[in-house]
Design a protein around this nucleic acid. Structure first.
Ligand SMILES: Nc1ncnc2c1ncn2[C@H]1C[C@H](O)[C@@H](COP(=O)(O)OP(=O)(O)OP(=O)(O)O)O1
Ligand SMILES: [Mg+2]
Length: 489
DNA sequence: ATACGCAAATG
RNA sequence: AUUUGCGUAU
């Protein structure tokens, strides 16, 4: 029962103000420097109210420096406006006024968070994800709370929790998972929660926070923000009894507080696990153990934490079958070493985005296409660089595929076979090879692989103009020599 | 070393 | 929210 409302989608991701009427260049960099300046005294504020048992945490949250810092990061994120329509640019323009106003209203405990705007975006695996976009000013408050509470909770979170945390991420998570597999725990209990953020239990969360946070005013503030009603794209207003908005800067942190209880329980049972947000992988030695662990952990989650397990995503899997953070694992028989490989979904998605970014009917110049592709492939390889060397060698065929897609564009841009023939000659291809490409009588895709065009655009031509996934892997994986890292430049 | 900006990825 | 890569500047 999907509703219309897709037209609002573009609004959410509407990029910042390229076409906007910012005429007077006056003050644009000025107010930014004002923000930077007032955000500077961060060290002072955090020193006197760092302790969790402090009764004056709200003063720390509402300090000018902290609010300025919070506004800066909200502005940097360039998010969409909330239900009050205020954009991040407007908020930045009114920064001095906004900050004093927020400070006043927060300290008086009269901050009104306003409703949350619901926006539907498509999920990668099909279905729709309901984002909750709070007002910009509310996002600033959430960010301000985050900056104060995070240092308090962060040190007590479990080391096997890697999602949304400082100095942790997918790479540390995969590293830890690989360790467990190498130790011989080669059955994976993969647990994913259903609609995780939407089902966070408010009272449970606040109770757990109250064990560490003495200042009740902070808890009341968070409670009020959690209870914000949601306004659907069609205007219907819905009261909220559970969940934390997917789009609030504080939400990921709150979700870690909720699932920290789960981490402690798994640790208490002596389980080896890696958790990233609502995706938990538990490593056991046998399938029998896996079945037992799956059942008991599921009971714990559903009965104690009141969270529902997503039965479609959750299962007991062999390392080759898992899809964890985009990776899967390969156990070479006998040897203890584990290969980190691209999961099937990841491979498929890589190829489809390459295909989408290189349409045969590309209208602009081939160089802009290669620039776009380069940006994408560069970021892609930065993330997937931690796959093992064996996998990296397979990336060579992807590179070749990319080159062929680009050659197909070049071929098509020459419209007629005769033009292509002459163009190939001009690039120094022999008459025979040029004719074999231009007049082969096949389609552009077939032509893109023929010797004529390949000789006009050989791999060496692409070298330096377009990044190669395989080459990037070798650049990014630090070449190690005798326990010493060598850095060029 | 710090900070800003762009990009990719995970959830 | 976090991470990583690149660029710029002090
Ligand atoms: N684009 C996003 N913006 C903000 N939060 C997100 C985003 N994607 C994921 N999250 C957060 C909210 C989700 O509840 C949580 C877990 O993600 P995910 O498992 O993919 O979806 P889900 O748990 O909400 O639904 P599902 O039932 O499909 O598992 O991560
Ligand atoms: Mg989930």
């Amino acid at each position: 029962m999907r509703r219309k409302g897709h037209h609002q989608l573009s609004f959410v991701f509407a990029d910042s103000p390229r076409g906007g009427g910012d005429v007077g260049g006056s003050g644009e960099p000025e107010r930014r420097s004002w923000l930077l300046h007032t955000a500077k005294h961060k060290t002072m504020t955090s020193s006197f109210t760092r302790a969790a048992d402090s009764n004056r945490l709200l003063e720390a949250v509402a300090s000018k420096a902290n609010l300025a810092q919070a506004l800066l990061s909200v502005v940097r994120n360039k998010g969409a406006p909330g239900i009050d329509g205020q954009t991040v640019e407007e908020a930045e323009a009114q920064a001095p006024h906004l900050l004093t106003e927020l400070r006043r209203v927060l300290l008086a405990e009269r901050f009104y968070p306003g409703d949350i705007r619901r926006v539907w975006i498509p999920k990668p695996g099909g279905g729709q994800r309901g984002l909750g976009i709070p007002n910009v000013r509310t996002r600033v408050v959430q960010q301000a709370v985050l900056q104060i509470l995070e240092p308090i909770f962060e040190p007590t979170f479990h080391p096997s929790s890697h999602g949304f945390r400082h100095n942790r991420g997918a790479h540390t998570a995969i590293a830890e998972a690989t360790e467990y597999l190498e130790e011989g725990f080669r059955t994976v209990v993969d647990l994913d929660l259903a609609q995780f953020f939407d089902r966070v239990h408010h009272q449970r969360l606040l109770d757990r926070m109250s064990q560490r946070v003495a200042d009740r005013r902070i808890l009341n503030l968070i409670r009020r923000m959690l209870r914000s009603a949601v306004v659907m794209p069609d205007g219907t207003r819905i009261e909220v009894v559970e969940g934390t908005p997917q789009g609030g800067p504080l939400s990921p942190f709150l979700s870690n507080i909720v699932l920290d209880e789960f981490d402690q329980e798994m640790a208490r049972r002596g389980l080896r696990f890696v958790r990233y947000a609502d995706d938990a992988n538990v490593f056991v030695r046998s399938e029998r153990a896996g079945i037992r662990v799956m059942a008991s952990l599921r009971r714990f989650l559903e009965e104690r934490l009141r969270l529902q397990v997503n039965v479609e995503k959750s299962d007991i899997r062999k390392p080759e079958q898992v899809h964890f953070l985009g990776f899967c694992f390969r156990c070479t028989d006998g040897v203890s070493s584990i290969e980190v490989a691209l999961s099937r979904k990841t491979k498929r998605r890589l190829l489809t985005t390459i295909r989408e970014m290189t349409p045969p009917n590309w209208g602009r110049s081939i160089m802009t296409c290669m620039a776009d592709l380069g940006r994408y492939l560069n970021g892609w390889s930065a993330y997937y660089r931690l796959c093992t060397a064996e996998v990296a060698s397979e990336l060579g065929v992807v590179d070749a595929h990319v080159r062929r897609r680009l050659r197909a564009i070049i071929v098509r841009q020459k419209k007629r076979p005769r033009f292509l023939f002459r163009y190939l000659l001009s690039r120094g291809v022999s008459r025979k090879a040029a004719a074999g490409t231009a007049y082969c009588g096949k389609g552009n895709w077939a032509k893109s692989n023929r010797p004529g065009i390949v000789r006009a655009y050989p791999p060496s031509w692409f070298h330096g103009r377009l990044i190669s996934l395989k080459a990037r892997w070798h650049e990014l994986n630090p070449p190690r020599v005798n326990d010493q890292f060598v850095l060029a430049l």
